Amino acid sequence: MSDSLEIPDELINLGAAAEAERLKLDGLDGEEWQSQLRAWRTAADAVQAAVTAHAQESALNRVDVEMAVKRAVRYPAP
Rank of each mutant, 00 (worst) to 15 (best):
M1E: 02
S2F: 14
D3I: 13
D3C: 13
S4Y: 12
S4E: 11
L5R: 11
L5W: 08
L5H: 06
E6G: 02
E6M: 09
I7S: 08
I7H: 06
P8W: 08
P8F: 09
P8D: 00
D9I: 11
D9N: 12
D9V: 14
L11G: 01
L11A: 04
N13M: 11
N13R: 13
N13W: 05
L14S: 02
L14T: 03
L14P: 01
G15F: 08
A16F: 03
A16Q: 11
A17N: 06
A18T: 08
A18D: 03
E19D: 13
E19F: 12
E19N: 12
A20F: 00
R22W: 14
R22T: 01
R22P: 08
K24Y: 04
D26W: 13
G27D: 00
G27P: 08
L28G: 10
D29H: 11
D29N: 12
G30H: 12
E32R: 14
E32F: 12
W33L: 09
W33Y: 14
Q34L: 13
Q34D: 07
Q36E: 10
Q36N: 12
L37K: 09
L37P: 00
L37F: 15
R38C: 06
A39Q: 00
R41Q: 11
T42V: 09
T42K: 09
T42C: 06
T42A: 11
A43F: 04
A44Q: 14
A44F: 11
D45I: 02
D45G: 15
D45K: 14
D45Y: 07
V47D: 03
V47K: 04
V47S: 05
Q48Y: 08
A49I: 10
A49N: 01
A50M: 02
V51G: 01
H54L: 00
A55M: 05
Q56L: 15
Q56K: 14
E57R: 10
S58R: 07
S58N: 09
A59L: 10
L60K: 03
N61K: 01
N61C: 05
V63E: 01
D64M: 02
D64I: 00
E66H: 13
M67C: 05
M67V: 07
M67Y: 02
A68D: 00
A68T: 05
R74M: 13
Y75P: 00
Y75R: 02
P76I: 08
P76E: 04
A77I: 08
